[in-house]
């Protein structure tokens, strides 16, 4: 169960423990947290929602991509759903590799891919309203109805 959607606060150490391996020389951990200010606007809290079964599959796909591109890597990702307050942990990504440079690069790959292909959405709640956020990468909408091949299997 290296790839999970969690309804409760994420145990960061438990995610890290999943990638411990004797051949690793480095483990990088990314912890995504809920930010208060975005472009000057104050967030009160967020609601994250997932298409859970597909989200787990897509997290697994990201893990497979990393193992193919960075041989010897181990990957674990947990993304939380539900209501999150400011400073709460939304996602934890742990990657172990034989050498440190790969661990940094592979971890970066994971978070960027989450923002492209994993069906998870956040609803921002402000003092004066709420809105589902999409397209954070400021890419065009998908003209063919799905991510392009290069987006899916870069």
């Amino acid at each position: 169960m290296n790839f999970e959607i969690a309804k409760e606060p994420i145990n960061i150490q438990a995610v890290i423990d999943k990638v411990v391996q004797r051949n690793a020389g480095a483990i990088t951990t990314f912890i995504g947290t809920v930010r208060e200010l975005t472009k000057g606007k104050k967030t009160l809290y967020l609601i994250y929602e997932a298409y859970e079964s597909m989200a787990v599959k897509k997290l697994e796909q990201i893990g497979d991509e990393i193992k193919e591109r960075w041989p010897g890597a181990e990957v674990a990702i947990t993304h939380r759903v539900g209501r999150l307050d400011i400073t709460d942990v939304a996602v934890v990504i742990a990657v172990s590799t034989p050498h440190r440079a790969d661990a940094y690069e592979a971890n970066r790959h994971a978070i960027e891919r989450i923002k492209e292909i994993v069906p998870i959405w956040k609803k921002e709640h402000w003092e004066d309203g709420e809105e589902w956020i999409g397209d954070q990468l400021e890419k065009v909408a998908y003209p063919t109805g799905k991510p392009e091949e290069k987006d899916l299997y870069e």
Partner: peptide, 26 residues
Amino acid sequence: NEEFASNENVIEAGDEVAFIPPVSGG
């Protein structure tokens, strides 16, 4: 059925179809 499809794909009996707005996880 939990895999991205294109606009030309034909839906079969029993298929689960999900519409996925631009995602915003992370």
